[in-house]
Design a binder for these strands. Sequence first.
DNA 1: TTGTAGGCGTTATCAT
DNA 2: ATGATAACGCCTACAA
Lengths: 337, 337
Amino acid sequence: MNIRDIAKLAGVTHTTVSKILNNKGSISEETKKKVLAIIKKNNFYPSEAARRTSLGRGGEIAFVSSKYASPFISTVLEGVENSSYGTGKYEKMLSTYSTRGSNEIKDETFMKIAAGRLADAVIVLALKPNEDAMKEFKKSGIPVILLESRMKGVDSITVDNVSGAYDAVSYLAKSGRKHIALIRGVTGNEEVGPVPHDREKGYKKALTEAGLKTDKSLLEEVIEYTFEEGRAALDNLLARNKKTNSIFCAAGDICALGVMQRAQELGIKIPQDISIIGFDDIPAAALVKPGLATVKQPVYEMGKRAFTMAVDYAENKFLDTVNVVIKPELIIRASAG
Amino acid sequence: MNIRDIAKLAGVTHTTVSKILNNKGSISEETKKKVLAIIKKNNFYPSEAARRTSLGRGGEIAFVSSKYASPFISTVLEGVENSSYGTGKYEKMLSTYSTRGSNEIKDETFMKIAAGRLADAVIVLALKPNEDAMKEFKKSGIPVILLESRMKGVDSITVDNVSGAYDAVSYLAKSGRKHIALIRGVTGNEEVGPVPHDREKGYKKALTEAGLKTDKSLLEEVIEYTFEEGRAALDNLLARNKKTNSIFCAAGDICALGVMQRAQELGIKIPQDISIIGFDDIPAAALVKPGLATVKQPVYEMGKRAFTMAVDYAENKFLDTVNVVIKPELIIRASAG
DNA sequence: TTGTAGGCGTTATCAT
DNA sequence: ATGATAACGCCTACAA
């Protein structure tokens, strides 16, 4: 059943049907009604593929991430999705691509989207497209929005990690803690990105403002951001510096929960003996006892803005490059009391 | 840049290029090499849309769920995704659709996929496609795989909720508990599906086998499956039956965590005074103290099987209807000690 | 092994 | 207001 069959049934030409389907040109109310009735009766939907071939564009917004199964990713996606509903343009399909952590698949995916003209705009989460793909995107006028990643001349939305860390550590300092430890990921490596470094910057800034000195014995580095590493981190910190009475776990909530569990095993009281603030605000943070104070990533909001930008740019391709920076929010719970 | 431009550059016709692109027909090694080199040099990728129009099929596997942001959903998706790479087929072509909880969007989405011939197979999570769409899928020979949902004559993969509940309650009974409460969702309503009912069935079966009687005062019903409801549920249960010394929270881990938190507030010792088993195995279940014993949903496995079935059926459309039932696994942690 | 010609279902252009 | 005709870019019998 195609557009010509419908036309035949209605006694018009396929041109007329197409116009009705797309609300273009001028069609008499009468024929319009007749044709629409036939379309409805036959449950006819035009072939998306043919539509796209003819239009020369994919008609969908692509979302590319390294995998699907992560609370972070699915929350961003939800933000994207919900705002697509908000605009009333939900007929615009959102298609998701995962690179499965492989660089090869990543390059392939971007090239396919770009050169295969699959999408009208691309939202990229924590990945950098390869040069060839970027050229292709530019050439085809497909806007690219980077989330949690940056490239010269490309629009991006990032989290203000410095400010998030600063807020957390300032809070700890203001509540009277003098020995505030920092747990963060590996820094100084192109691969890991600027996040751990930025959070350390915020930490140091807050210490300085509070008149406290940075102390190497209060710095702990983790690699995988795991619960187990958090447990070990506390042991290491205490072995090096018994005065530790506060911890900002820039390595994330999972890690912070490890710290908390280990502390409880050791009979350390939270927050009396040691107060703790994590990063992310994962669901479990609100469920444990005491609740884990944390810096909430504006994940959902990032997704929303990304979609809005994607649609705007897809429709008006001559705007300046924009780098949106969103401030994260400090969530105080009992662990930082 | 299209297939003809490439052909011109290589001094052949577009037919030859097409054959090379699709590994069809017989082409001399020499021309093949030459053409591939030119394709690579120009970063050429064929237009997906044109490809699909010509082939008459979408070439992708569709995954439809009511939203994206849920650990359950993203884990299923991960299972699907990982097995898609395992087969080496449909590698980059898994497209996801979300109905955003709206029935209208749901119907629209299915019709678009079905009649618009977007996909070669459809995996549906916890949703029922409308009749019209199902007809269309049948007509176009697009296989549909239902996850956590069932329809007559449609392939499905479901969790054996009876067995999961049975295992949990049997465990509690064997560890000597005589007053085992059940917290479950609303039953008897077409809308909510058979899950709460099935879990209650497993609960009753286990009680009977253990020589225990079902006791109305030990049954608590929740609606939203929230943490708060879990807290209230414990209060209600204790108000009705002070002997309650064990709880199977069929309403899920979030709810069970609410029960645990409230118990700790009331000075009730877990598992000594009351032992608890939840359902789902969300990440937080392993992180709280004591660890929450639970029935682990075989979510990842469901995703994997779904994909395998989808691909098999897309390639050989004349198989019998299959209803796969996967048994969930009881995970014992300290809360059920 | 390669090329010619026609088809897929849509949209766009320009007459009528 | 409607229709004839030509794109769009690809695939594939069938002919050379």
